[in-house]
Design a protein around this nucleic acid. Structure first.
Lengths: 191, 191
DNA sequence: CGCGACGTTGATTTGCCTCAACGATTGTGG
DNA sequence: CCACAATCGTTGAGGCAAATCAACGTCGCG
C-alpha cells in the first residue's frame, strides 16, 4: 500500500496499523505515460482516482471542437467525473496524464466494501468532498471577479512551481483563454 | 421534525422511524424575512443550512464594491460558506433570503453528535457533498463554454419557474454579467 | 404623494477572440 | 546523425461580446 495515500488519510481521520495494512486490498495501482488517457468521454465511469505522483488534466471537447481544461489533479488529489460516477451516466469528461503519473484507482464496488469494513473511511471521503466543493465555490468566485490577465498573474504568484510544470497552452485552457492572449499577457509583464 | 428534510434523507439512505424521530434534536428551525441575512462576510461560520421553503442568495462583495451572486439555494438544497466551515476561518460569503424563507440549521457541533449517534448520516452528507461537487464541476464547464447570452437563454429554458421568482438584477449577477446587458438580451429575444 | 428600487436605452470603450503567418523547439524515422 | 514533421509559442491586424457610464421610465411602498 502506498504511503502517500496513508499520509493523506491521516490528515483527516485516525486508523490503526491493522486497518492501514488492509487498506491496500481496495486500491489498484496504475501507471500512466505522458498523454495517456485514464478516462474517456462517452465511457462508463465507475472509479475515482488518487494521484500519488504526477499530474492529470481533466477536460472535455467543446461544441466548437476545441479542448477545454477544467481542472488539474496533482499529488494528493482525488479526481474523477463525479457527475458520471454519482448519476451512473456516461462520462462527459476526459482525464489524461500531463506527465508520467502514478494513480490509485478506487472502484465504486471497492468503495462500498471499504465503507462496510471501515466506517471511518466514510468520514474521510465526506471531508474530501466537502473540501473539494469548498474549493470549487472559491474558484467560481475567482472566475467571476477577475480578468483573464489577473487570473494568470495570481496563478503565477500562487503556484509558481506548477506554472513551470505544464505547457502554456494547457494553462491558458485551464484559465479560460487562448494561447495567443497568454503570449500577449506575458509580453506585457516581462518576467 | 420537518418532513421535507426527512424525504430528502430517504432519497439517499435508510433510517428507521426511531431514528427519524430523534433527528429533530439536531436541527434548529429558523425563519427569514425577505432580504434578511443568515450569514455575514467576516463572521465565524459554524453551521450549514437546509432550505425547507424559500430561496437564499449566496454572494460576496467584489473589490470594485459591487455584489457578486455565486449561487442560489432553493428547496431541498444545503448551503453554507463551506470553505470557512471546513477551515475554521472567517466567512468570505454572505447568505441572504431572496424571499421569505424557512431553513434548518445544523451546527458543526450538532453534526458531530449526529454522526456519533447515527453513522448512516455520515453517508448522507458524503453523498450530498459529492453531488454538490459534481454539480459544481458541471457549472464550471458551462461558464467556460457559453457566452453570457447563451447562459441566460439556457437558464430560462431549464428553470423557467425560477426566472419568474427572482429579480432580474440577481439573475444577471448570478450569470456573471450586468443588468444592462440582460436588458439588451431580453430585447433581442422578445419573449 | 414622493422617494427609492428596479428596469431600459444608447453611446462609447475595452478585454479578449479569431485568423493567419512565422520562429523555435522537440521528436522521429531513414 | 541528419532531415523533416509536428508541436508549441509569438506577433499583429481586425472584429465582436460585453462593460461602463449616464440618463431616463416605471412601479411599489412608506
Amino acid at each position: 500500500m502506498n504511503t502517500s495515500l496513508q499520509d493523506h488519510i491521516k490528515r483527516f481521520i485516525s486508523l490503526d496499523d491493522n486497518q492501514f495494512d488492509r487498506l491496500g486490498d481496495y486500491f489498484e495501482r496504475r501507471m500512466l505515460e505522458k498523454k495517456q488517457t485514464l478516462l474517456s468521454e462517452g465511457n462508463a465511469c465507475h472509479e475515482m482516482f488518487f494521484v500519488v505522483k504526477g499530474c492529470l488534466q481533466i477536460c472535455y471537447i467543446k461544441k466548437n471542437g476545441t479542448e477545454q481544461t477544467i481542472d488539474f489533479a496533482i499529488e494528493n488529489w482525488w479526481t474523477s467525473d463525479f457527475m458520471a460516477l454519482h448519476s451512473h451516466t456516461l462520462a462527459t469528461l476526459t482525464i489524461k496524464a500531463v506527465e508520467k503519473t502514478e494513480v490509485l484507482v478506487l472502484s465504486a464496488f471497492s468503495q462500498k466494501r471499504l465503507f462496510a469494513e471501515m466506517p471511518e473511511m466514510e468520514t474521510y471521503f465526506r471531508l474530501i468532498f466537502q473540501r473539494a466543493y469548498a474549493a470549487s465555490q472559491r474558484r467560481i468566485c475567482l472566475l467571476y471577479e477577475f480578468s483573464r490577465e489577473d487570473l494568470y498573474l495570481q496563478f503565477c504568484k500562487n503556484f509558481p512551481a506548477f506554472v513551470q510544470r505544464v505547457p502554456q497552452y494547457l494553462l491558458a485552457s485551464f484559465l479560460g483563454f487562448t494561447p495567443e492572449y497568454l503570449s500577449e499577457i506575458r509580453k506585457k509583464n516581462i518576467s
